[in-house]
Design a protein around this nucleic acid. Structure first.
Length: 331
RNA sequence: CCGCUCUUAGCUCAGCCUGGUAGAGCAGCCGACUGUAGAUCGGCAUGUCCCCCGUUCAAUUCGGGGAGAGCGGACCA
């Protein structure tokens, strides 16, 4: 696989393709980053962007993980003390998940975001940005239902982080795209380059297939889930025998979250996927890529119940080291 | 600072005017049907009615005070 394909594999979008192509010409030493608000436990959304970081490392990129303590604070996630504590735990969980510790730069936001120069640049960006634009950028990220001034500043800091961390490629889930577009629009006004961005898809809500899986409300998969919990959550997931489910009764688009997890989480990390299946249904199946598994589910060759069993097995394997780490952290 | 509106089930809200400790939809849980889930059908549950004081035999409901949230307070019309 060439560098461009590896970089863009499983991406929902890339801004812009040309910019990524030119990065792909010589990826060695190029820098990519993701920022995360520290939270106590990694969930499946964190793991999705982490997969991309792992692939970028394979492609030769230097990877920066911003543990965005100041952002979390601005977004009302707690006191600095609480947030910093979870930042530490989060770093350890990322390493347990598979980010190469010696090859990943973990940076705490407060290490540079409180410097005078940064602050003045931030004010310059504030001057260039109206409130409604900032609010729109935050719509899918903000906690609480009405935006605070802190939350208006938040996306501007993300823009500036890209400059200060000297990043060539900004990574984020699709919920980050408006922030990144704001960064592309605004940074040139302070004589900085518009960043190149790559956005990962969002996994659909596990129980309905509509919208995105919620980490706050509803069912989500996280690193602290026991094998039994994983099995139960996967088993309860919406999974028609189709890769392209019919819209819901209210017309809302639906995806197949079980397939999505295979595509974005399992196949990127495992060469072969073995679906154990009772003899009466035809015995075990082995897949070496997502396409063939999805095609079999779609055709009826692979029953959703068997796919779910396999999904729980592999998810459990992915989560196990992190779960062990969390157990340690709590003891 | 001033004014208006809101606060009842996990969520969105009804009820309060005309006091007798509460309802709907959605979500949830259980069961049936499917070798998964969903859909469908059947069943089940849930509440410091924001807090305090007062009136009353009795307050979610009336009165007073307080808290939290939202919106508004130039000009023009």
């Amino acid at each position: 696989m060439d560098a461009y394909d590896l970089i863009t594999q499983n991406a929902a979008e890339v801004v812009t393709e040309d910019e990524v192509r030119s990065l792909a010409e010589d990826p060695d030493g190029k820098r990519a980053y993701v920022g995360y608000e520290p939270s106590g436990v990694l969930h499946i959304g964190h793991m999705l962007t982490a997969n991309k970081l792992i692939e970028l490392q394979e492609a030769g990129f230097e990877v920066v993980v911003l543990l965005a303590d100041v952002h979390a604070y601005l977004n009302g996630k707690g006191t600095f003390e609480e947030i910093r504590e979870t930042a530490d735990r989060m770093r350890e969980q990322f390493v347990a998940y598979g980010l190469d510790e010696s090859n990943t730069e973990f940076v705490l936001g407060s290490e540079f975001q409180l410097d005078e120069e940064y602050t003045l640049d931030l004010h310059a960006l504030e001057l260039e940005t109206n409130l409604s634009r900032a609010e729109r950028a935050m719509a899918e990220i903000q906690s609480g239902d009405t935006a605070t001034v802190a939350q208006a500043v938040y996306p501007l800091m993300q823009a500036l982080d890209i400059v200060y961390l000297d990043v060539d490629l900004a990574i984020g889930g699709m919920e980050q795209r408006k922030v990144h577009m704001l960064a592309r629009d605004t940074l040139p006004s302070i004589d900085e380059e518009a960043p190149t961005c790559l956005h990962t898809p969002l996994i659909a809500d596990l129980s309905t297939g509509v919208g995105k899986m919620s980490s706050s409300a509803g069912v989500s998969i996280s690193m602290e889930d026991s094998e039994e919990e994983l099995r139960e959550k996967v088993n309860k997931a919406f999974c028609p025998p189709s890769r392209d489910p019919e819209p819901a009764d209210d017309g809302a688009d639906r995806d197949n979250p079980v397939l999505q997890i295979f595509e974005y989480h399992i196949f990127p990390r495992f060469c072969d996927v073995v679906v154990e299946r009772p003899e009466q249904y035809g015995g075990n199946l082995t897949y070496d890529d997502y396409e063939s598994l999805a095609a079999d589910l779609d055709s009826g060759e692979l029953h959703p119940a068997d796919a779910k069993g396999a999904l729980a097995d592999y998810l459990n394997e992915l989560v196990a080291p992190g779960r062990e780490k969390i157990r340690e952290q709590r003891s």
